[in-house]
Design a protein around this nucleic acid. Sequence first.
DNA 1: GCACTATCTTTGGTTGAGCC
DNA 2: GGCTCAACCAAAGATAGTGC
Length: 285
Amino acid sequence: MPQKDRHKNRQVEIEFHAQEHLTDLPYNRRYSLILLTQGSFKAKLNNYPITVNFPSVICLKSGDDFEVLNQQNISASTFSFDPTFLNTVRLSQSKDLNVPNTPRIKEGLSLFENDLQHIGLIELDTEIYSKFLQWFFTLGMEVSAQSDDLWVCRIKQYLIQIFNLLKQLKDDGQNSAIDQALKYIHINYASPIRSEDLTQLTHLNRVSLNEQFKKRLNQTALQYLMSYRLNIAEQMLTHTGMSLNDIALATGFEYDTYFMKQFKQKNGISPTEYRNLSREIAVAQ
DNA sequence: GCACTATCTTTGGTTGAGCC
DNA sequence: GGCTCAACCAAAGATAGTGC
């Protein structure tokens, strides 16, 4: 059942299941993120046999052919949403239910496209699992508590973070020093990260670390961190109504002033101008 | 209170020399 | 060739202040 937003008198097309039994998946007209928190199971997804072991995330959408064949001591949580939930509508259009070309959270739906390269299953390691556990716990709390009128905003913020990390996990897969550093950045970008943290992690000195980063990404480690943070911030500006200070804090900037300075340097416009423009452009297309 | 600018301090990037 | 170290300078980070 969709959530009734008690602050804005509207239906929000999302659900959170703390105890997922896997029997009714996929849910009708829903995309679902399933976090396996215990056990393992074998299943068929669109006729493709998969083995899912804790800890993993499964991305399922309405229309997928999903059948659990056998399971052992499983425990899972699910966050489900109608794909239109990823759309962001300007306030002036919020009463128009059929607004075409609204901006949509970038990495969202591509995770649910199943093909030979990607079967909707993303395995986690223990470090990343603890991050997902924290996000899912918070999603569940936000859905049930609706503590203020920004609760939908915050859910979109967590979805942006979850989608970006899942996309990185889907694309990565090696375990070189740079891969370790990238993984560290993708998990911890919301906290302060210093060059020293990455050199200790990779056992490289500053010069070697940056040389290897430049070979692979054409950026130094901290330049990559900055562009990753600003990329997440851009999505939050477009898809949430969070204040600049909240976005700055959520993306690892200790000061909103520094965030704005970096943002303007990268994009040539202020965050507020970007927020307005990105929504206008998408609607005009 | 929020968004933004100016300025000062600290940290990181680059480069050349040298070691293994 | 791959790495470390040291020095210099630019960029990032922190703080104070302004305007709305």
